[in-house]
């Protein structure tokens, strides 16, 4: 044990860079593992909420196959790729190949940015412009055309009509969005006509494929390719509506969990990118550290990398439970 002694003679905190012999770890590495343990519990809490709510959901209130699987797959691949390159970056430092390090780290950062861009410029906005209306079960019979025949009970009942909102009741907060969409599609005859003779208390929705052919086989299972929106549109009277909302967190517990979990994960990605950027740019504690103490820089990259692997791992859970199941 007394080989530890030298470390305790000066007033510096020991084992910030060198590993403690009997534990084989430098402190920051142990620290990040503990931090990740707490992160596991954090996302664990969220995932258990997902399970709790999904199992507890009334039949017909938990949509499936809404998300764009190909895009999700690409993002997954990109994130996994970045997890590999960050390891290369670390290895490069270990071998004292600074330029390689800069290169791999740059790739990692770009991958992260790509992932975020896809989320923020495509995936989330695509949700926002969709609109869903849950029909009161007592009024469902009026909308068999779009909901299909729930009485048969041969499949999970469907209570929601979703699509592009073309017209909204006067008091609805979505009036703006409706007018916007309507003007955008002004070219087409159909919905326009629809919207025209829709009363002030009606929603008009250019419905999604599921509602266009509600009893079709493929509705049951999640579809790989996103299914194009139909030309049909539905006129729904306010009285028959249980709840109506764009695909926002408030829309349903499904979107609440989706946005909260992917949002929190997105923040983690952002955090990782910022740290990487700090280590990549010539900051005193960043790339400049290479000159004074390359091992220390390598440690920092390793620690940041461990965090990045975790962020990756979380996504590997998120992807199946939201996109595939």
């Amino acid at each position: 044990m007394s080989k530890l002694l030298p470390f305790f003679t000066d007033k510096e905190v020991p084992y910030t860079v060198a590993a403690r012999p009997d534990t084989g770890l430098y402190s920051a590495k142990l620290g990040i593992w503990l931090f990740l343990a707490s992160e596991v519990m954090l996302f664990g809490g969220l995932f258990s909420a997902y399970i709790f709510l999904r199992l507890g959901a009334e039949p017909g209130y938990w949509p499936t196959g809404l998300l764009n699987v190909p895009v999700g797959t690409i993002n997954t691949a990109v994130l996994i790729g970045s997890s590999v390159t960050v390891v290369f970056a670390w290895a490069a430092l270990k071998m004292r190949e600074f330029l390689k390090y800069k290169l791999y780290m740059a790739i990692t950062i770009l991958c992260g940015l790509f992932f975020l861009c896809v989320k923020l410029t495509y995936e989330w906005p695509a949700k926002f412009e969709h609109f869903g209306v849950f029909i009161k079960q007592s009024a469902a019979h009026k909308y068999v055309e779009f909901l299909g025949d729930n009485s048969k009970g041969d499949r999970e009942p469907r209570w929601e009509i979703s699509g592009h909102l073309m017209h909204a009741p006067k008091d609805s907060p979505y009036r703006q969005q409706a007018e916007h969409n309507a003007s955008k599609h002004a070219g087409h005859g159909t919905e326009h006509g629809q919207a025209a003779h829709a009363g002030d208390d009606d929603y008009v929705i250019q419905v999604d494929a599921v509602n266009a052919k509600p009893d079709a086989e493929e509705n049951g299972k999640p579809s790989f390719w996103p299914r194009p929106i139909s030309e049909k549109s539905a006129v729904i009277h306010k009285e028959d509506v249980e709840s109506a909302s764009a695909f926002l967190p408030r829309h349903s517990t499904y979107f609440a969990t989706y946005f909260l979990i992917t949002g929190l994960h997105g923040l983690h990605v952002l955090g990782g990118i910022l740290v990487f950027a700090y280590l990549w740019l010539p900051f005193k504690g960043g790339a400049l550290l290479y000159k004074s103490n390359p091992e220390h820089l390598a440690n920092r990259v390793e620690v940041a990398g461990l965090f990045w692997h975790f962020v990756d791992l979380v996504w590997i859970f998120v992807f199946p439970i939201f996109y595939l199941l």
Binding site: E12, V13, T16, A28, G31, I32, F35, V275, R300
Partner: peptide, 15 residues
């Protein structure tokens, strides 16, 4: 956060 941690243990950690 924790990367900041490792940052905090820089050479002048206590100072």
């Amino acid at each position: 956060m924790s990367t900041i941690a490792s940052e905090a243990t820089g050479h002048h950690g206590t100072d």
